[in-house]
């Protein structure tokens, strides 16, 4: 089981308190009805699914219930960092992950 640090509660809690909410930084168009089919497919269905560093959303559903973002390695399942929702994608990762 993963230990996940909630950036709002500021502590590591077991995975059972959290729900994964998919890839982070997928931006919904302001004009969703005007999206082309190609763009809608990218927004709605296409995912990075990386083997390595992933940016993903989690929700501390059995804690503070808030959404936040995390950086994790999908090969080791190790978390690199977590950060609050709305914060930009970190340009540089701590520990200079591969």
């Amino acid at each position: 089981m993963l230990l996940i640090r909630c950036p709002y509660c500021e502590e590591e809690r077991p995975e059972l308190e959290f729900r994964n909410a998919g890839e982070a930084h997928v931006v919904r168009s302001a004009n969703i009805a005007g999206e082309s089919d190609d763009d809608f497919e990218k927004f709605f269905f296409i995912r990075a699914n990386p083997k390595g560093v992933i940016y993903e959303r989690w929700r501390h559903i059995h804690g503070c219930a808030r959404f936040f973002n995390a950086v994790r390695d999908t090969v080791t399942d190790k978390f690199v960092m977590t950060y609050k929702a709305g914060e930009p994608k970190p340009a540089k990762l701590p520990g200079a992950a591969k």
Partner: peptide, 13 residues
């Protein structure tokens, strides 16, 4: 499991 992973393991729970 609920998250994307290539680890070929998985949570005990």
């Amino acid at each position: 499991d609920q998250y994307v992973s290539y680890s070929q393991t998985g949570g005990l729970h």
